[in-house]
Amino acid sequence: MTDVKTNVSGFFPRPPYLREKLKSIGGLQKESMKEETKKEIIDYVNRARNEVIKLQNKANLDYCSEGQLLWDDLLAYPATKINGFKMNGLIRYYNTNRFYRTPIIKNKLKLDNDFIIEDTKKAQNISNLPITTLLPGPFTLLDLSENKYYDKSYDAINDIKKILINKITSLEDLGIETIQIDDPSITKNFDGIKRVHRDLKDKTDLTLIINTYFGDATPIFDELNDIVDGIGLDLVNFESNWEILKNKKTPRVLKLGLFDSKNTRVERKKKVVREVENILEFIDSEEIIISTNLNLDFLPWPVMEKKIETIGLVGEEF
């Protein structure tokens, strides 16, 4: 019997008041900022976090995302908190019309400041639903950075791994049960996927879901499936990912990206329900999570709201 759960992939669009506030101080993931400005921003972020957590609770999802409202992109937020990175100019984010600031590795990567932990605690305090936290995947962090320090990428990925393990352990201490690791670059099939993700997994009892998107997961699926608890698949843009579901043994937890974060057309509830019923016939996972295919900040706010509501309604059918 498979449990059917619901969530979203996190990374909410910023509400207008938060955008305006950040605009007024001229950018966020900067190295220096006055203490009082920081405090003021934290108030605004708290307000926005409250709002997105309320949305997810109201929609009756099963897991709740912290929201990642402070993150400018998947890399900038962690990279400004990790010693050894310097931020550089904008580069196109995969095959999208979005851009991210490139982190340059200038020195040995070491955890410097806290990140994620405080935000997660705040989210736990206001949500009735269990919080899912998001971390950048090790291969994506390395792939989208420019390495000017390490001779071997093996050493770079090892240091990144250590930082992630530190975060995972701290999150486990907070009582977090599920972490979503966004690792889109993993679909480029790097060396060492098995080793790195096994090391992450070995250090913890919580559920790690490796979220894949922007690429076909077929080439890395088996390797990943051998070692991790959970895998997320984009089932909107990659027809081939449906073949995985039909033909392969699926992981304990399967995150189904059935809602498209890259289109404002809101999915029809009945259609998604049929898709899920269909999937349940050929998979052997303990748990499936009906979700978005990728981060929500590709959507305008009102459409994001509507999609969350619909995900909740689909969940009620199971």
């Binding site: 669009p13 950040l22 851009f99 404002t264 900040d297 590709f298 959507l299 305008p300 706010w301």
Partner: peptide
């Protein structure tokens, strides 16, 4: 139709239109 602004990078958003 315009539903609202969408992120282009960081805190920069633009009114991405939808064909409805």
């Amino acid at each position: 139709r315009f539903y609202g602004p969408v992120r282009v990078w960081g805190n920069n958003y633009f009114n991405k239109p939808s064909v409805v």
